[in-house]
């Protein structure tokens, strides 16, 4: 049997950059969203859903969700890498988190494209 180390740092740089790139995008989106929200005449269903049915903000919002889920994946993975030492449990948790986040991405797409 070939002994392989199932954890390591060889995939680190891509995720390191990904974490920061998604962070920058989400920070910019937060400002854009705040400006849109401040321009809302009232917090009603009509105004709120009209805001997101505009193609531009819907596109940006979906991108925000994708960035958020990728960012969350890296962050949660790092937390597990720091505190969960048994490899089996850690990998199990990784799979659960990945499945959850992929599911959330589908949910976010459904919320935005049913408008």
């Amino acid at each position: 049997m070939v002994k392989r180390i199932v954890v390591g740092a060889h995939y680190g740089l891509r995720d390191w950059i990904g974490q920061r790139a998604t962070a920058v995008y989400m920070a910019l989106y937060t400002v854009i969203f705040a400006l849109y929200a401040l321009a809302l005449p009232e917090m009603s269903y009509e105004a709120w859903s009209a805001m997101f049915s505009g193609g531009f903000l819907r596109f940006l919002t979906f991108l925000f969700f994708l960035a958020l889920f990728y960012h969350a994946w890296i962050g949660v993975r790092d937390i597990f890498m720091d505190y969960i030492k048994p490899t089996g449990i850690r990998l199990g948790l990784h799979v659960i988190v990945l499945f959850l986040l992929i599911g959330y991405a589908g949910w976010a797409a459904q919320i935005l494209w049913r408008l």
């Binding site: 859903s49 949660v76 959330y104 976010a108 919320i111």
Partner: peptide
């Protein structure tokens, strides 16, 4: 960050309800 991750389903639920229909709003 961990707290936000744990509450993601709840926040998505609220976002979902707020944009579903006037009733779900």
């Amino acid at each position: 960050g961990a707290g936000l991750f744990l509450f993601l389903p709840f926040l998505l639920f609220l976002f979902d309800r707020s944009l579903g229909s006037p009733e779900s709003f």
